[in-house]
Lab assay of single mutants.
Amino acid sequence: MQRVNMIMAESPGLITICLLGYLLSAECTVFLDHENANKILNRPKRYNSGKLEEFVQGNLERECMEEKCSFEEAREVFENTERTTEFWKQYVDGDQCESNPCLNGGSCKDDINSYECWCPFGFEGKNCELDVTCNIKNGRCEQFCKNSADNKVVCSCTEGYRLAENQKSCEPAVPFPCGRVSVSQTSKLTRAETVFPDVDYVNSTEAETILDNITQSTQSFNDFTRVVGGEDAKPGQFPWQVVLNGKVDAFCGGSIVNEKWIVTAAHCVETGVKITVVAGEHNIEETEHTEQKRNVIRIIPHHNYNAAINKYNHDIALLELDEPLVLNSYVTPICIADKEYTNIFLKFGSGYVSGWGRVFHKGRSALVLQYLRVPLVDRATCLRSTKFTIYNNMFCAGFHEGGRDSCQGDSGGPHVTEVEGTSFLTGIISWGEECAMKGKYGIYTKVSRYVNWIKEKTKLT
């Protein structure tokens, strides 16, 4: 034993070699072989497995989906700052455009905790909710729209109204504003409101030439003092309507412009014939205590009207009353817009006519005020429907199939267009061939041609 100890002390290297040989010859039971080890760690190889990531292109799944990435790591994937920024906006807080917040056709661009709407022409605001041009839906104005110097929408209202708090709607500024039905039992019968379409306001006024200088022999019209197929109006439903009495009662109609003036057809009036105007009328054979009678003290036909040349060209006249009318729910003026808007309103496509005229061709006159909704007829169809001249200051309205029309005794009465609950004068009943005849239409004086003249002559002093 002493000898062994001496050998170990003198030859430590020998001992180490012996131990190493023993270990190498022993069977290893701690580690699995290569094949079995792979069965336990069965993990798919990654895209760049075996390579240094710093030297390969980034992978979106590896960089940002398996674990949260930084902007720089995302930049490695896209290799483009702009594309990385677009991805980053949604990656950080989701897609803010998912709810489609942009209105009126706006395009949404996502941002971090926010979004941006790219608005089409005519709109602005956070969600493109603000109209900035009158060309689109009248700028959301209830009545009139004008573009300011910086191309912003400025709404306005006709006389007797003021802008509401929203700067879009119009509200009454006087007790009985024009064009409004205020009798409670008839307010439910107000005709369907007309909503502004998209309009090209630059070209809204037709490029028409008034044929002022045409000389033409007097034409022989049949029954051209021209509501057939209409309905009984309720008291106060058309408070701007008046009836004219002269040699015979209810020979023509008219509309209240203001307390002192009536507008009617020029062919209705004769110099030297006494005319009485009755406002607030409903049943011409009954006294309903809503009527107001006034005498006409002055007749002003349009300066281009000449019955000797043509009885229905420039067929418009103004009547001055001896005493002002007292405005109330049964006696209310009709609204008159400017030339541009009167023309736009007419193009809405349908209007209402009213009167006490004959209820059928050569038949009896109506006792109760009649009204009828009539569609506008395109000019080409209008011209083809008659052998008589249709001037540019006239328009056609009615039904091709016949059966409904204005008729004798309705002449001078109103053709009105309702705009968001307020009625505007767009025409004056003038003439036609018979009444409600198939293929024939009622012919009306186009008020847009005469609004400046009306307003100039009827100013209240």
Results as ranks from 00 to 15, higher is better:
R46G: 02
D338T: 10
S156D: 11
P239W: 01
V263I: 12
L425W: 00
F345P: 02
F360P: 15
F196D: 12
A37V: 11
V154N: 09
D33K: 10
P235T: 07
N36S: 12
F144P: 00
R298S: 09
N59D: 11
N295T: 11
S99Q: 12
A207H: 11
L20C: 10
A26G: 13
I214Y: 13
G13I: 14
S406T: 15
G230M: 08
V273A: 13
H361C: 05
G122A: 07
G106E: 03
T426H: 01
E165I: 09
P414C: 11
K446P: 04
V243D: 02
D150E: 11
K459Y: 08
S217N: 10
C108G: 02
N59K: 03
I390M: 09
C102N: 02
K188R: 10
L319M: 14
K457G: 05
P197T: 13
Y444G: 03
K89G: 11
C128Y: 02
R62H: 03
D93Q: 13
S25F: 12
N304E: 13
D322G: 06
S365Y: 12
S204K: 12
L319F: 04
I336V: 09
A37F: 02
A173S: 14
G355P: 05
V269R: 02
L41W: 04
A279H: 01
Q219C: 05
Q57M: 06
E433D: 15
A207N: 15
A233D: 05
M437C: 07
Y444W: 02
G230W: 15
F123V: 07
E76K: 02
D95T: 12
T81C: 05
S114A: 13
D93I: 10
L318T: 01
S49I: 05
E418G: 05
K455N: 07
G254S: 01
I40L: 12
C268W: 01
E401Y: 09
D223H: 10
G253N: 02
R364E: 15
P324A: 10
V227G: 15
G280W: 01
S187I: 12
R373Q: 14
T194C: 05
S49W: 04
D93R: 13
T190E: 09
E401M: 11
V242H: 00
F388Y: 13
E323W: 06
V153Y: 08
E82W: 04
N166C: 03
P414M: 15
L24G: 05
N36Y: 05
Y450M: 02
N113S: 07
D410E: 14
A164Y: 04
L23K: 02
E66N: 06
Q167A: 08
H400K: 13
Q57H: 02
P235D: 04
F388D: 06
P172V: 06
V269C: 09
D131M: 13
S365V: 11
K446V: 02
E61G: 03
V195W: 11
A380Y: 12
I40P: 13
C155M: 01
G50C: 03
I334S: 01
V368Y: 06
Y201Q: 15
R191F: 09
I344V: 09
S385H: 15
A9T: 13
T190M: 05
K89M: 09
L23G: 02
T445H: 05
T209E: 11
F196G: 15
I136K: 12
V92L: 11
R191A: 15
R384E: 11
H282L: 12
V419C: 05
T218N: 15
N213V: 08
F395Q: 00
E86A: 14
A207M: 10
S350I: 08
E35Y: 14
C108T: 02
G398K: 06
Q185V: 13
V77N: 07
G272R: 11
V419W: 10
E231V: 14
L189G: 09
K188F: 13
Q167H: 13
N48R: 00
N59G: 03
H302W: 06
H314S: 05
Y371M: 13
E340L: 10
K152T: 12
I428A: 00
C145V: 02
N213Y: 08
N127W: 11
L319R: 00
I443D: 01
W431E: 08
I210N: 06
S114Q: 12
G398W: 04
T332H: 06
I443M: 09
G351I: 01
A265D: 01
I7T: 13
V202G: 10
D93E: 09
Y450N: 02
V331N: 01
T271V: 08
F176T: 07
E35I: 11
C28L: 03
Q237T: 08
D200P: 12
E171R: 07
T158K: 02
K146T: 15
T133S: 14
N203D: 07
S365N: 15
N452I: 04
T287R: 07
P375C: 04
Y161T: 01
A337N: 00
S25K: 10
F196A: 14
Y391K: 10
G253K: 08
N166E: 04
G253T: 15
A173T: 13
I40F: 08
E259Q: 07
G13L: 14
G357C: 12
E433Y: 06
H361P: 12
S114D: 14
C170D: 01
L367R: 14
